[in-house]
Design a protein around this nucleic acid. Structure first.
Lengths: 326, 326
DNA sequence: TTGTAAGCGTTATCAC
DNA sequence: GTGATAACGCTTACAA
């Protein structure tokens, strides 16, 4: 494939001039420019970005290390992150870890070798020892030493969920979440604040006997059988806050299968929102964490670091979206 | 950041030897190797893949140009494609077009500049004029001149859907799909064969008065209001085949909202399957096109072309997954 | 076994 | 305005 030298020869100019034309930088006489452009069109010359990255020591590639793009929220966040990066002139490399630390380690190593400009991290594993802190990094929903993070306002989300369930008349509460990860990893997740906000707000209303159902993080979709049993054990519960819409959906299904009605007998509220949520069955009442706003915040933190700044964390506001389950 | 020369100096060897150690190619005396490895570990040297790509004229990056990763099937296919590529030593660049031709054009140009090793295409737009046919390419579900494609056995899927609805006693049929794209693009989609297989199989059973609901391709998720009206107009219909599970979900919801029961009064079958389908409400009976198998086929065609072979198309078998809507 | 040197395709400095 | 030329960091003949 033709290179810049070929173009220069045919146009009877030096390669520096061709470079100036391609990047329209510096002074180039109009005629010269036109001559060069003509040759470029004729021989179908396409500048080689790899060589360009080589000299510039920067390739405009950013990596997103995440569990998968199957879970609706991840797929949606990925889409928005990629869209925002595109608008800013970056390319995105996806790295699905399938929640496996070994794979994350291999990926991080690969990304270092490939000299990506930055890494966006979404993981529950303790990848900290493998990170090169000199590289711009942003984490979503998790804290890593020296890495700024973006999260939705999880605490406030819990508060809003509590207030909403109270407002629609619930008396006995339950929280269901897969953020019980003490045994698996030391990573501090922002997500737990949903639970804390929920408990503290109910506490302010004198409610303290909240059933707290915790289970270890799995693949974010299926929930263990004994969680379902626990739900059925507590027939007095009439208000349930679930850590995600996916979990809420499972819970609603379970409750209806076991002869109680949603929302008449039990009200259920989830977390996530977004447009990917399929309208099959009931539209779930949910705390929305807007993926585009999250993506904007993530990319801003990435760019700030590329500019050698040291940005702080970013908390994105959430809002209540009332559906058919409360 | 340290380079190969630095390592060579410190180890007191030539750069070729360091290269041999890194890639463990060629002969290197055991002692020499150990000395070099020690230095590499000491100074934390990480080989530069950009420079490597430069020399090798190949970067092991493959691009996937698709509408988005929000639609459940796309997100799932993306995940599997990326997983398979990872297993084969490739990296994946995602390029979401949001179904917009302009964006696809910009992306294709960017990918040429970046010298990606191959492009995987999933689009309904006529991108053919912008493709560089010398580049390895594979298309999913669409035909482009000179580009091999992978598709599920759409025709057979239609046949299976017809047989299943017949088997469960349906008498009056409807097909609903967004593959009516004659006005928008000239691209031949494999997806239309779902409709053809369905019609032809019913025809074999003497059934020809099938209500055919076509609407223009939108964002794959929402379906136009008048489609819902048409459904309600034809209360005699008791068997509906929808072009995707997402559409089927909307249809089920609509029918139930309008006072008929699924599956008692009307049976609905969709297309896609996969694990991403949330269990909210009814589990949809569906023609499964296994995303991992599709991903395997796609990557095989990619690799064959990288090896300079000229592979044919690949049709992946589908299977019926009976849920709660038939 | 090992080292030297050419080449991959750019950008950018510095003369002219 | 424009053109040589030196990086950028690697792989791989070819020599030794």
């Amino acid at each position: 494939m033709a290179n810049i030298i070929e173009v220069a020869k045919r146009a009877g100019v030096g390669i520096a001039t061709v470079s100036r034309v391609i990047n329209n930088s510096g002074y180039v006489k109009k005629e010269t420019r036109e001559r060069v452009e003509k040759v470029i069109a004729e021989i179908g010359y396409v500048p080689n970005e790899i060589a360009r990255s080589m000299t510039l020591q920067r390739n405009n590639i950013i990596a997103f290390l995440l569990p998968n793009s199957i879970h609706r929220f991840f797929g949606e966040l990925l889409y928005h992150v990629e869209t925002v990066l595109y608008e800013q002139g970056y390319k995105l490399m996806v790295c699905s870890s399938s929640e496996r630390l070994e794979k994350e380690i291999v990926y991080i190593d690969m990304l270092k070798k490939n000299r990506v400009d930055a890494i966006i991290l979404l993981t529950n594993n303790d990848v900290e020892p493998y990170l090169d802190k000199r590289l711009p990094m942003v984490s979503f929903d998790r804290r890593f030493e020296g890495v700024p993070f973006v999260a939705s306002d999880n605490y406030n989300g819990g508060v809003i969920a509590a207030r909403h369930l109270l407002a629609v008349g619930c008396k006995h509460f339950m929280f269901i979440g897969d953020d019980a990860q003490g045994e698996q990893t030391a990573v501090e997740t922002e997500v737990s604040k949903r639970r804390i906000g929920f408990f503290e707000e109910l506490g302010k209303h004198g409610i303290t006997d909240i059933i707290n159902v915790e289970y270890p993080l799995g693949n974010y979709i299926y929930i263990p059988e004994d969680v379902h049993r626990t739900i059925n054990l507590h027939r007095e519960v009439d208000g349930i806050f679930c850590i995600s819409d996916a979990v809420a959906a499972e819970v609603v299904k379970n409750i209806e299968k076991n002869g109680r009605r949603v929302p008449e007998d039990v009200k259920v509220i989830g977390y996530d929102g977004g447009e990917s949520f399929l309208n099959l069955g009931k539209r779930i009442t949910s705390i929305n964490q807007p993926p585009r706003a999250l993506a904007d915040a993530i990319v801003e933190l990435v760019q700030a670091q590329i500019r050698k700044e040291t940005p702080g964390n970013r908390i994105v506001p959430v809002n209540l979206n009332v559906g058919e389950t409360t």
